[in-house]
Amino acid sequence: MSSVTTDCSKSKSFLIDTTKCTGCRGCQVACKQWNQLKGEKTEFFSGEGYQNPPSMSEYTFTRVKFKDYQKHGQNEFAFYKEMCMHCNDPACASVCPVGAFKKTAEGPVVYNADRCIGCRFCMVACPFGIPKYQWSKAFPLVKKCTGCYSRVKSGLEPACATACPTAITYGTRGELLKEAEKRIANRPDRYYKTIYGKEEAGGTSVLYLTHQPLDELGFKPVTSRSLPSYTWQALRFVPGIFLTVGGGLSLVSWFNHRKERVKREEEQRKASAETHNGTE
């Protein structure tokens, strides 16, 4: 159940070391190829550096963001791949009224298009803005990174991880966390000391290492609690409230009716008594 944070240390995760990312965008293209996604009609320049397309979309499950700026007179040219974080306790899965999203034991959070009713609650819920909609269609569905579940299930690594020459390591979350910590310890000058995804949204299956402070790169600050727990703390009262309100109102009305009846009977008795003692 989604409100109980499961142990994800054995599930497969991505370690994306942006200090090693060259912004080659092989991942971006590999993803399109594997998922047979359309190339978007874009214009230069839709973002910093050579960033394109302007945002992720139904056709773009992953995108390399460019940051091109100066700090203390030095150039910073940084790149990071955005994609579904495959949260340990995914918000998208928790809010979906028909349970179209599911966190798999292997790690990827997968989407069952056959169930989806297209309400877009998942899009509102996802703290990372990942699920995208087929806006061009009359009867649209949601689209997002699949974590290459079909590949992972057959023992392959995700297409993007396979294509990446340097930055992406794919493995179990537990090992990758250790690896990330090791890298930070080995080269403290190179790494910012926070592993993005370790705590975010209660922990995700995508972990990032960076050189620059996270906010400089535009990483979204996200609560460290699992998001579904926020909803669940209210939702869990539902049966209770239903029973309380229903029961309470039944009691109240029963009580009021009794009062009324008693009153009416009283009045009637009085009335008849009066007629008995009738003075008229």
Partner: peptide, 11 residues
């Protein structure tokens, strides 16, 4: 048919 009791929208 497809219940998800964790979803306020389901509710």
């Amino acid at each position: 048919v497809y219940w998800n009791v964790h979803s306020p929208m389901f509710e």
